[in-house]
Design a protein around this nucleic acid. Structure first.
Lengths: 116, 116
DNA sequence: CCCTTATATTGATGATTATCAATGTTGGGG
DNA sequence: CCCCAACATTGATAATCATCAATATAAGGG
């Protein structure tokens, strides 16, 4: 759970910009693929987009169920996958659950691409 | 086939930086998800990484089969998916097929993330 | 022409996944 | 304490996918 923080270059002997990357190791690739798996679904992309577009920075499940035309359990399932991937943050207030973008998470994914 | 070029903001009324994005439409999301689907496999990430790391900028299938410990048909299958996603370019010279990164393709994916 | 080598395609199979219906859980009001 | 609303979890099902074995294609050399 919460993958993105761990995805720095596994053997960060130096620091930046994919120094002398000896191609991607099997385990490393498996971890990074998990983040892209989370992004590899149209409805999850739309969820991220809606949450990002919200002025308050957060959305509750009830606001996300209708625009996607999906059942509530399905939306909850997708949200869990996005949270587990480290892309969304979940905060429960009262009966509602509020989801917001994890700051910098999408940038981290972009960095994975740049350092492939 | 060849998805990335089409993935500019579907309704590009202005130009840049996800102007007033009204969240992601269903069809738009479906298209963009295809690119992430291509990236959502450890072996495909490794393929991209190996091709990118190659000094010559290209690799033939025979160079890719061994490091992944996969059968040749499986590697060909993964390569086709990456080509169809617009990430890799295929050039046949003689008996060999040479695969190379499509210039700017990974940057385009990063832009998709930034403009979600 | 045949043979060999490199790669692609096909068909089948087991694993993963998206979705829903049903049920469980949690928190706030009466 | 009971009920209702919001959300999560479970179980089942159909679809998608990764992989391989077998076969097809294509190109170069004898």
């Amino acid at each position: 759970m919460n993958l993105l923080p761990i995805l720095a270059p596994a053997t960060d002997e130096a620091c930046c910009a994919s120094a002398g990357a000896p191609a991607l190791g099997a385990e490393e690739a498996k971890q990074k693929a998990l983040v892209f798996k989370a992004l590899a679904d149209p409805n999850r992309l739309r969820l991220l987009s809606i949450v990002k577009a919200e002025a308050s920075g957060e959305s509750c499940v009830c606001d996300l169920t209708e625009p996607l035309d999906l059942g509530q359990p399905t939306v909850s399932h997708h949200l869990k996958i996005l949270v587990d991937a480290g892309l969304l943050h979940r905060e429960k207030r009262g009966t509602w659950a509020y989801y917001s973008l994890v700051p910098g998470a999408l940038d981290d994914v972009a960095r994975i691409l740049a350092n492939l």
